[in-house]
Simulated scan of single mutants.
Amino acid sequence: MNKSLCCIALLALFTTACSEAPKEETAVDTTQVQTDAAKTVPVGDTSQNSLDWAGSYEGVLPCASCEGIQTLITLQSDNSFVQETVYLGKDESIFKVAGKFDWDSSGSKITLSDGSKYLVGENQLFMLDIEGNRVSGELAEDYILKKKRI
């Protein structure tokens, strides 16, 4: 009987010695954390997070007063860009613009610092109209810049 009493006492001692002290809870506003995360990273697969969009895109965009606008846009992974344009059949000087671009909240469209907008697709950029919509009609294919292969 003495042995079983000692065993029970030791078991009780080990049980209480191994239990953790109550932890102090810290209040975290999870709503704010979730809201901040939603502002920076779109949810699900988007052009921004699922395509290999960094690189150079080129093509000839339509021009009302020239033969076309030879365009080369290079997008960097740090959201910087360089755009080089040549107005074919005119001066043919290279106009170069560099700056930053922003992704829209859906992670599918970018806006360059000059205000021009593009839909980012698989190995191509679709130039958008002033309202941010894809150009439709007969000339729609002329508003696509193709990614250069290196």
Rank of each mutant, 00 (worst) to 15 (best):
residue 59 G to H: 08
residue 94 I to C: 07
residue 56 S to R: 11
residue 17 A to E: 04
residue 90 K to F: 09
residue 104 D to G: 07
residue 60 V to N: 05
residue 93 S to M: 15
residue 26 T to S: 14
residue 94 I to M: 05
residue 53 W to Y: 10
residue 107 G to S: 05
residue 39 K to N: 09
residue 94 I to H: 00
residue 81 F to E: 02
residue 92 E to T: 08
residue 107 G to C: 01
residue 50 S to C: 00
residue 25 E to I: 11
residue 123 N to L: 06
residue 25 E to Q: 13
residue 19 S to W: 07
residue 112 L to N: 10
residue 64 A to D: 13
residue 104 D to V: 00
residue 33 V to G: 00
residue 26 T to F: 13
residue 74 T to P: 00
residue 123 N to K: 14
residue 77 S to C: 06
residue 95 F to Y: 13
residue 122 E to H: 03
residue 41 V to Y: 09
residue 65 S to I: 09
residue 33 V to S: 02
residue 43 V to P: 03
residue 91 D to A: 08
residue 114 D to C: 09
residue 54 A to C: 05
residue 64 A to I: 02
residue 66 C to D: 07
residue 16 T to K: 11
residue 65 S to E: 15
residue 84 E to S: 13
residue 116 S to H: 11
residue 33 V to M: 03
residue 104 D to S: 05
residue 98 A to L: 02
residue 28 V to D: 04
residue 104 D to A: 01
residue 38 A to P: 03
residue 61 L to G: 08
residue 57 Y to T: 02
residue 108 S to F: 12
residue 85 T to I: 04
residue 99 G to Q: 00
residue 62 P to Q: 10
residue 111 T to V: 03
residue 68 G to L: 10
residue 85 T to D: 04
residue 35 T to H: 05
residue 110 I to G: 01
residue 64 A to N: 09
residue 79 N to V: 05
residue 91 D to F: 01
residue 92 E to Q: 13
residue 30 T to R: 12
residue 27 A to S: 12
residue 119 L to G: 09
residue 28 V to H: 08
residue 29 D to A: 07
residue 78 D to Q: 02
residue 30 T to Q: 09
residue 74 T to Y: 05
residue 113 S to T: 03
residue 126 F to C: 08
residue 102 D to I: 06
residue 62 P to M: 02
residue 45 D to L: 10
residue 104 D to Y: 01
residue 25 E to D: 05
residue 88 L to R: 11
residue 124 Q to W: 00
residue 95 F to R: 15
residue 61 L to S: 00
residue 43 V to Q: 11
residue 64 A to Q: 13
residue 126 F to S: 15
residue 105 S to E: 13
residue 96 K to L: 09
residue 16 T to G: 06
residue 118 Y to Q: 00
residue 76 Q to T: 10
residue 44 G to N: 13
residue 87 Y to C: 05
residue 52 D to N: 12
residue 19 S to R: 11
residue 65 S to C: 07
residue 53 W to N: 07
residue 116 S to K: 11
residue 87 Y to A: 14
residue 40 T to Y: 14
residue 18 C to N: 12
residue 114 D to P: 04
residue 125 L to V: 02
residue 93 S to W: 12
residue 81 F to K: 04
residue 90 K to N: 11
residue 120 V to H: 00
residue 106 S to H: 01
residue 29 D to T: 06
residue 101 F to A: 03
residue 123 N to W: 05
residue 89 G to K: 07
residue 73 I to E: 02
residue 17 A to G: 08
residue 65 S to Q: 14
residue 111 T to A: 00
residue 97 V to M: 14
residue 46 T to M: 00
residue 56 S to T: 15
residue 117 K to P: 03
residue 72 L to Y: 06
residue 86 V to N: 09
residue 65 S to W: 14
residue 82 V to Q: 14
residue 79 N to D: 13
residue 97 V to C: 06
residue 122 E to F: 10
residue 36 D to G: 06
residue 116 S to N: 14
residue 62 P to L: 09
residue 82 V to R: 09
residue 35 T to Q: 08
residue 36 D to V: 06
residue 75 L to M: 06
residue 94 I to A: 14
residue 44 G to M: 01
